[in-house]
Simulated scan of single mutants.
Amino acid sequence: MSFTLDVIAERDDSASQRKEADMVPTMMLVADGSQDTHRMEALCDLADAVASRNEAPVATAFEPGQELNNTIESIDGPLVAVPAYLAGGDLASAELFSEVDLDNRFDACATSPLGAVPSIVGDIARRLDEAGWQQGDGVVLAADGSPDQEGRQEVTAVARMLSRRVHSPVQVAYVNAWAPSVADAVERLRRHGQQRVAVAAWQLLPSADDEQLRELDVTSVTTPLWPAGLVVDTLLARHRAAAARLAA
C-alpha cells in the first residue's frame, strides 16, 4: 500500500510540474514611477499596452519599497521580471530593479534592461531627423546614468550604433551622474565648431529631467521612446526568450 501511495504521489507531483511548465510566466514590469504622476501614468499605459497583446499575464511593480516584494510574493506560478526602462537611462529604476530577489524562486528569472537593440536605436535616429537634425550637426546622447559598469557599457554601445546610423560622431553625456554633463558635452562640440547640436534623449519614459534638457541651448531634443509599438514588441520578445529558458 505504501508503495502504491508513493507512486500516486510521484505521479501527482509530475503532473503538477508539467502543468506549471505549460503555464505562461507572468511578466512583472519593474520601474520606479514614484517621481511624478505623469511618469506613473506613462508606466501604467505601457503596462496596459503590453497586456493588450494577450501574450502573458502582466503584473507591475512601479513603487519602491515593500510593494516590490509584495508583488513578487503574490504571483503564483512562473515569473519573469522585466525592466521597464533603458539600460543606463534611469538610475532610480535600476536601483529598484537591483532589489528584485528571485533566489528562492526556481520558477522565476529576470531579463536585462533594453539597450543597444537595432530597432530602438533606429527609432532614436528617426526621432533625430523628425526633430530637425541635419547631417553635420553635433549629436549628444543624454543618459541618466547607471550604478554598474554594464549599464555604462550599454550606453556606449548605443552611441556607437547611433553614430553608424546617422554617419556622425555621437558624444555620450549624463544628466545626473558622472561626467561629462549634457551641458558640458554641448559646449565642447560648440568649441569644436559645431554650432548646431542635437540631443538624443536615452529615455524610455518622460521624467523630471525633461525640462532640464529642453532648457539647453541646442537645436533639438528628441522625445522619449514610449509610446512606440516597438517598445512593447521588444519587451515581449525579452519575456518570450526568458520563458523559453524557464521551460528548458
Rank of each mutant, 00 (worst) to 15 (best):
H38N: 13
P118K: 09
E41C: 03
E150M: 12
T26K: 07
V121W: 00
P113W: 02
W178E: 12
R152F: 09
P113E: 11
F3N: 14
A183F: 00
L235P: 00
S146E: 00
L86G: 03
V172R: 01
F3S: 14
L204P: 03
P57R: 01
S74K: 03
A244R: 05
E95N: 10
T156E: 14
Q17D: 10
T60A: 04
I72R: 00
A15V: 07
V221Q: 01
L213C: 10
A9W: 04
P78E: 03
S146Q: 02
L68H: 03
V140W: 02
R191C: 08
Q153F: 06
A116L: 08
G88A: 01
E63H: 07
D209F: 01
L96M: 15
R160W: 00
Q66A: 15
D13N: 12
L235I: 07
S2G: 11
R188V: 13
N70D: 15
S98Y: 01
A185F: 08
D144R: 03
M1S: 12
P169G: 03
T222R: 04
A9H: 09
A9C: 13
A15D: 04
L216M: 13
Q134V: 05
A81N: 05
T4C: 11
F106E: 14
Q149M: 08
L102S: 07
V218A: 10
S93G: 06
A92N: 01
G138V: 02
A15G: 06
R214Y: 05
L216A: 08
A143I: 03
E55H: 08
H167Q: 04
Q212R: 10
D129H: 07
N69K: 04
R152Q: 15
P118V: 09
V218L: 08
A47Q: 00
L79W: 02
L43C: 06
E10M: 13
Q35E: 14
A243I: 08
R196V: 09
G77S: 13
S34H: 04
A56I: 05
S181F: 07
V166T: 02
R105P: 07
E211Y: 12
T37G: 03
I75C: 13
V7R: 08
T222P: 02
D144E: 12
R53W: 03
E95G: 08
A179P: 00
V139H: 03
C44Y: 11
P169D: 00
D123V: 11
P64G: 11
A110W: 03
E215R: 06
Q212L: 12
M1H: 08
P57T: 10
G151M: 09
A108W: 01
N104P: 01
P64S: 05
V186E: 01
D6E: 09
N104F: 10
P64L: 14
R160F: 04
R188K: 15
E211D: 14
Q195Y: 02
